[in-house]
Design a protein around this nucleic acid. Structure first.
Length: 588
RNA sequence: CGGGACGUGGCGCAGCUUGGUAGCGCACUUGACUGGGGGUCAAGGGGUCGUCGGUUCAAAUCCGGCCGUCCCGACCA
């Protein structure tokens, strides 16, 4: 393949586009790979299309290698299957819907669980047909509230979605492991630095789900890692090791104190120290027990339930974590505009909750036998030595407190947690029978009795992967593609006004004949400086300059990642280009 | 959905306060020079100033609605 820049549909930009904030967006637009065409929608220009195709090829190869078979569904789908699965309404505003000329409802597919399930149900009817795994690489549509970061989160994006169908749990686990391993091969080949995190907290039980997160400061997902072991998890899935239980009766009795004007933890700690409560002047927020009132609405329930959550006062309640822990119920902060009998805002203590019939869940740090400074359920009053298991008994523990860097690792004895950010590039999920139940997929088993298949689903955001690679592989001058996804293998620059352009053109043809993908900068009336700058912006791993030493029989080979330059004869160059390139260092 | 900033040739920006024939840089065209790090000179082409409405003799400029973009948060995964 030989691409000539003199005719290539490309215009690089000297300045950053004003609407681009993140590096991948900035550079992909500046270097002429993509261009915004619509809110959350991007046009792939020739160079970008090449990169996208190479990424797609890697994904397709690895999916086929594990025996998945490729299909392609329409993006325009009828309402009924999504109505049946409940997602027509559940997905809500995030789904693009439209009516046809007869007034019938349709949607633009946000993912295709329903369609795959129906396809398998209508095609395979015997246990002998299973297991089977299908995938497609297709444009998806989601009416994102806020598209951002160019390709990172669009309203239209390319996704690989795969679905496995097995007859039993063991089969599902095998399919899951197979896809997980394929994903590792894919992202390794694509040169991505990624972490696999558990996505769902164990508190839920049930389905297993892991996310592949590409490390990046612009990532939207926060996850935690361990300093000592390879533990990694979404913040929702982090568990808190409880402190050892203590004897509840080793503490002095609870005592109530006047603490006027102390509705916040900060003001309470200040007053507690000033008044030397319980003889101490070293009170900190961590000694206090903060009680937060939330409303919990269960699906189908008419009235939300009132719930009080107790966490150490130096921590906020993380509503995302609490929500995940109580899922499928939804959680909102309690709206105090409706007065609640029995609860004194700012001075809530757990001592009275049982009597009021209000459920009380605590952070695992609020272990039996721990003593706290907490509210006394009277305005301007707090109590010391309020002991868990003696003065109050929680209805259970809940992972609701925020996770912080430095917290102990739940998986090993010595590690502490660090907060990291990542771009979600892949997701593997043991779906279970949600969809086969809904669509009543039953196949004949060996004994003639119906068997209901069990599903897994596995997604990769293909266009987002391109952005993630760009995020991890660039420097201040431009993109630095890994060889596996670069639009070309060699960027051949003709520098000089002599015979170099013709010579470079012949060399380019020769390299292309040997199977290399060549981008040839054969533009005349463009200075060498401009060509070098463009080459660095475009980011092809190896740049060959046919320039002033051509007359002596030499060309220059540059390594885009390292900046190394060597002068070589053409025959040495041809030999050298046959060798694999070193992968560029990660830009972080 | 809430808060903030913004919308002027393909790209980056000025002009708006104080209303009066739309400007700069990049890119593009032509010519000359230059030719290994975004070169120089000269001459050009291209914009209903996001959109709709209002005020005014007159609106890029003042006022309002809507649309869009970016950032923060919520939501989503």
């Amino acid at each position: 393949m030989l691409l000539r820049m003199s005719t290539l549909f490309l215009r690089t930009l000297r300045e950053d586009p004003a609407d681009a904030e993140v590096p991948s967006h900035r550079l992909l637009v500046r270097a002429g790979y993509v261009r915004r065409a619509a809110p959350g929608g991007y046009t792939w220009l020739p160079l970008g299309r090449l990169v996208l195709d190479r990424v797609t090829d890697v994904i397709r190869q690895e999916m086929l290698a594990i025996g998945d078979q490729e299909v392609l569904f329409p993006a325009l789908l009828p309402r009924e299957p999504y109505e049946t699965s409940g997602r027509w309404t559940e997905y809500g505003d995030d789904i693009f819907t439209l009516k046809d000329r007869r007034g019938a409802d349709h949607l633009l597919g946000p993912t295709h669980e329903e369609m795959f399930t129906l396809l398998v149900r209508d095609t395979f009817t015997s246990y002998r047909d299973f297991p089977v795994s299908l995938f497609q690489i297709q444009t998806k549509f989601r009416d994102e509230a806020r598209p951002r970061g160019g390709l990172l989160r669009g309203r239209e994006f390319l996704m690989k979605d795969a679905y496995s169908f097995d007859l039993d749990e063991a089969g599902l686990r095998a399919a899951y492991d197979r896809h997980r391993a394929a994903y590792q091969r894919i992202f390794d080949r694509l040169g991505l630095d990624y972490t696999i995190v558990s996505a769902v907290s164990g508190a839920m039980g049930g389905s297993v789900s892991e996310e592949f997160l590409a490390a990046s400061p612009v990532g939207e997902d926060t996850f935690v890692g361990c300093t000592a072991c390879d533990y990694a998890a979404n913040t929702e899935a982090v568990t808190t090791p409880p402190p050892p239980a203590r004897d509840a009766h080793s503490h002095p009795p609870a005592e109530t104190h006047d603490t006027p004007e102390t509705p916040t933890i900060e003001s309470l700690v200040e007053v507690a120290n000033a008044r030397r409560l319980a003889g101490r002047d070293d009170w900190t927020a961590a000694d206090t027990l903060k009680n937060v009132v939330v409303s919990v609405r269960r699906p189908g329930a008419a009235e939300p339930e009132l719930l009080v959550v107790g966490v150490p006062g130096d921590r906020e309640v993380d509503l995302k974590r609490l929500g995940a822990a109580l899922s499928p119920a939804t959680v909102t902060l309690y709206d105090w505009s409706g007065h609640t009998p029995g609860l004194v805002r700012g001075y809530i203590g757990p001592q009275v909750l049982a009597g009021l019939g209000i459920r009380y869940l605590v952070d695992p740090r609020v272990a039996p036998g721990t003593a706290w400074l907490t509210g006394a359920n009277e305005p301007g009053r707090h109590a010391t030595n309020v002991v868990c298991g003696r003065d109050f008994t929680p209805d259970g523990t809940v992972e609701a407190a925020e996770v912080r860097a430095g917290d102990p690792c739940p998986a090993c004895p010595n590690g502490t947690l660090v907060m990291r950010r990542g771009i979600e590039i892949g997701h593997v999920f043991q779906l279970g029978r949600r969809y086969t139940d809904v669509f009543q997929v039953d196949v004949a088993g060996p004994d003639g009795r119906p068997v209901r298949p069990i599903m897994g689903c596995y997604g990769i955001g293909v266009s987002r992967v391109v952005a993630a690679i760009a995020e991890q592989h660039h420097d201040e001058r431009g993109l630095v593609w890994p060889a596996a996804v670069a639009p070309c293998d060699v960027h051949l620059v003709a520098a000089g006004r002599g015979p170099q352009t013709e010579a470079a053109s012949q060399l380019g043809a020769e390299l292309a004949a040997r199977g290399l993908r060549v981008l040839l900068d054969d533009r005349t009336h463009v200075s060498a400086g401009v060509k070098f700058a463009d080459a660095e912006l475009i980011g092809i791993p190896r740049v060959v300059v046919v320039g002033r030493r051509w007359a002596d029989g030499y060309v220059e080979l540059r390594d885009r990642a390292t900046g190394d330059r060597v002068e070589l004869t053409v025959s040495d160059l041809v030999e050298r280009l046959g060798e694999p390139t070193r992968e560029p260092a990660l830009a972080r």
